[in-house]
Nucleic acid binder design. Structure first.
Lengths: 347, 347
DNA sequence: CCCATTGTTCTACTCGTGTAGCGTCCTGTC
DNA sequence: GACAGGACGCTACACGAGTAGAACAATGGG
């Protein structure tokens, strides 16, 4: 039919409807000026007939806004981030915005500013950072001329808007559950020290021990990957310290731990209980299904977009979303139910 | 410093460098006209000093190309598609292009044209369809005014450019491996009939049986989800027919099957072998690790972009990428090695 | 009947970039 | 010394949409 739909322009519609191009704009945008009902109808008919679609580039040029957000991703193999990504895409679509993906890997880990520039050059209205390298944050903040939020921050940072889970409370609750079940040697799998803040998951794990007056189990530092979880667990099993439960700080580590435990023939949860922080679908369909502190990815995505759209307090702002304790087979407790954890709070 | 980086324009650079704005363009684009070396240097210094970034919207308006591709995604919870997504993003970045994500779910399954329109209105240069609903294809093709390719097609379709794996060969090889190991009752987990083409995975599974003169095992039709794999496997275990191996048609079904087998206390591979088609990281870190026909997602992503960029044959074109047989513990065979399957071919 | 007011529409400029058409100057050759 | 030709650079317009300012018509009040 029409050779090229993109070539239908405002002027074409105006000509067909017998009006000026301004009127077409007013109709399209329910514009700043009123249009007589009869005229608007003629214009709408002309638009339908021609299959008119306003040119987004021209609009962006004129208005300075693209209705597009840039998402900087660090680890695309982590199911938590992929789930997060798609929740963000969905939430953005609900606001009529699209998401442009910038994978940090391809630009080389060394230069976060390059990613930001590539996205900013595309005229994105805002940036979402899901890059786990918290060391980047300050440089990213400096490099970004547009509003941005960290979508997975461990805690508040001055001058930065961020969203995170109530990780300390979630980890505390998860650990307390293990202790209440009778576990007395809960090892912690976690990332390297100085990876930004003191890790709130470690703090929660520790505080649950303090609260119950139980001596904390061993801490194993490794990477937040399947391989890291595997290697860390093997080291735990070969070590001197007694272990009757493992707290993995994300699902990837838990999946790796699972393999190590299976390979060593240690029954779960009979011999060693295993719980995890994140609670992606992978943890749900692992064997045995994992008891987790589930991050509310959907709520986090919405909060991130709210922060981006809202006013820009120079002091920064951190929104914390509650996690949810989901009890499955891997902790070996009798009940299998669900409890809401600490309520959402802000700081 | 500069109040708003986006506000630095070509004219600012020209003024600082003491040249006209055209010259700045020529330098930026290594433009259609030559520029004296000394002048170019001055311009470049001015650009650096001001932090000039060409406005992508204005460029897109002028040139009619956005250097952006739209990706229509059907199932964002399938690790195969998420891996594919990020390979596409990476491959596109290598060509200086970005990817705009359109999640089919949010628009409602009923109207694929709406997704296309939303993306096309954003001036994407091309479309990539990863929507598994093959029934959509013709409508999508009709709705798309820009070049498009199917990135996960089961076979050639007239007038459509598409990429797929050599699924029949891969399934054949995988099944043959099971039979060679002594399995004689290989059940097939697969999707509903009429889901587009006759499924090449079913054909490969069947042809391996014919080749070995072994009577094919039961066929279980279910959805391509974890839940579907679980339910299908439970039905298989409760059914009359003997089963000593299960061929899952994708990793999701395999993960579900794994849970069912574990729940029923059927040792893998001792009692029942399990293999899967896809070969994402989830299959690698399952317990036991799954023997798979791995789709070469990276090669598929590159092929898809090549097809999109290349000439547009009206007859359509289908590129097939070879799968790779990866032997792990779940099939119970003695060796654990890797074999390349049928080489890439085109049709 | 005139004029102010309101409602509706048109004209014209703007956003920032790509590039065609047209100088301008410089060099080499007869 | 005049002139052809090349190397550079500048001016000016187009891309498609948003919207302010002006124009025009219709209406009501005095």
């Amino acid at each position: 039919m029409t050779r090229d739909v993109r070539s239908v322009t405002r002027a074409d519609v105006a000509r067909l409807a017998g009006v000026s191009s301004a009127v077409v704009s007013y109709v399209v945008n329910d514009g700043p000026r009123p249009v007589a009902a009869a005229t608007a109808l003629r214009v709408r008919e002309a638009m339908d007939l021609l299959g008119y679609r306003p040119n987004a580039s021209a609009r962006a040029l004129r208005t300075g806004t693209t209705q597009t957000l840039g998402l900087v991703l660090g680890d695309s193999r982590n199911p938590f981030f992929t789930e997060y990504t798609f929740e963000l895409v969905k939430a953005a679509a609900g606001l009529g915005k699209h998401v442009l993906i910038g994978d940090a890997h391809q630009y080389g880990q060394g230069d976060p500013a390059a990613i930001v520039e590539a996205l900013v050059a595309r005229q994105v209205d805002g940036l979402l950072f899901a890059a786990p390298h918290h060391g980047w944050t300050s440089r990213l903040a400096a490099a970004s001329p547009v509003p941005f939020v960290l979508v997975d921050a461990p805690g508040p940072m001055p001058g930065v808007r961020s969203v995170g889970s109530a990780a300390r409370a979630g980890a505390h609750e998860l650990t307390r559950h293990l202790i209440a079940d009778g576990r007395r040697h809960v090892a912690l799998l976690i990332g390297e020290e100085g990876f930004g803040h003191p890790d709130p998951r470690e703090a929660g794990w520790l505080s649950a021990h303090v609260e119950a007056a139980v001596r904390p189990g061993p801490v194993m530092r490794t990477s937040f990957t399947r391989e890291g979880g595997y290697a860390g667990t093997v080291r735990l099993l070969q070590g001197q310290e007694q272990v009757d439960a493992i707290f993995a700080s994300n699902d990837l580590q838990a999946i790796g731990a699972l393999r190590a435990l299976h390979e060593h023939g240690r029954p779960i949860p009979g011999d060693i209980a295993l719980v995890s922080y994140d609670g992606t679908i992978e943890a749900e369909f692992a064997w045995p299904p994992l008891t987790v502190a589930r991050q509310n990815v959907q709520a986090m995505a919405r909060a991130a977009l709210d922060l981006l759209a809202g006013p820009q307090p120079s002091a920064g702002r951190h929104v914390e979303i509650a996690t949810q304790l989901i009890i499955r087979a891997s902790c070996g407790c009798p009940v299998a139910t669900t409890t809401a954890s600490a309520r959402a709070k802000e700081s």
